[in-house]
């Protein structure tokens, strides 16, 4: 499974919404429940799903889904 598809699964689990389709320019403004709490949960769930650890700076500069995918790509 490619990274985007796998991350999409993570998003669908976290937001309990099977219809979410990830786009690179998607931001927190595009998903209603994407608040700071959900963000923590996304980070932890993605770390577990991909078996990676993100650094503080990496998490703090994430701007959209495209950044998120690029970050994971870099780690693998």
């Amino acid at each position: 499974m490619d990274i985007k598809a796998k991350l999409q699964e993570v998003f669908r689990d976290v937001f309990d919404d099977g219809d979410i389709e990830l786009r690179d320019n998607m931001t927190a403004a595009d998903i209603e429940d994407w608040d700071s709490l959900a963000h923590i949960q996304l980070i932890v769930a993605a770390e577990k799903a991909f078996g990676v650890k993100f650094f503080t700076a990496e998490v703090s500069r994430l701007k959209n889904v495209g950044d998120f995918i690029a970050l994971i790509e870099n780690k693998l």
Partner: peptide
Amino acid sequence: FPELFSLAK
């Protein structure tokens, strides 16, 4: 934690 939190949600 992620599973529990999804459940909570």
